[in-house]
C-alpha cells in the first residue's frame, strides 16, 4: 500500500501538525516505505502464534484504591501559558 500526499495531509491534520507541500511529498515516500516493510513482515506465517504484548516477561501491575496523589493545583498549572487562578484557560470552545 502506498501513501499519497493527500493521505499525509489528512493524517497531519488529525495530528495537528503543520506540514508544507514539499514535506508532504517527502513524507509520503517515507511512510510508504515503512508500510512496505510492515507488509513484508506480513509474509511470515504466524498461524497459531500468540500475539506478543511485551518482550519482557511481565504482567500488568495493579495499584491499591487509595488516594496518594493530587492536592497540587499550583504545580499542575505552573506551565499553563494562560492561567486564571485555579484553572487552565483556553480560547473559547462552544458547541
Amino acid at each position: 500500500m502506498a501513501i499519497d500526499s493527500q493521505t499525509v495531509a489528512h493524517i497531519a491534520r488529525l495530528a495537528r501538525i503543520k506540514v508544507t507541500d514539499e514535506e508532504k511529498a517527502a513524507l509520503a515516500g517515507e511512510l510508504s516505505t515503512i508500510l512496505q516493510w510492515i507488509e513484508q513482515l506480513d509474509e511470515v506465517d504466524t498461524a497459531g502464534v500468540e500475539p506478543v504484548a511485551s518482550v519482557v516477561d511481565a504482567v500488568l501491575p495493579w495499584r491499591a484504591d487509595v488516594v496518594s496523589d493530587g492536592g497540587q493545583a499550583e504545580k499542575v498549572l505552573a506551565n499553563a501559558p494562560d492561567g486564571v487562578p485555579g484553572f487552565f484557560a483556553v480560547p473559547k470552545v462552544v458547541e
Partner: peptide, 24 residues
C-alpha cells in the same frame, strides 16, 4: 472508587478545581 483509573488522585465530586489531579 476512591482514586482514579490510572492514578492515585481522588475522585470525589465538587472539590476545588484542579486539586484532584496527578501528573498522569
Amino acid at each position: 472508587s476512591n482514586s482514579k483509573l490510572f492514578s492515585g488522585a481522588a475522585t470525589e465530586f465538587g472539590a476545588e478545581p484542579n486539586t484532584q489531579v496527578s501528573f498522569v
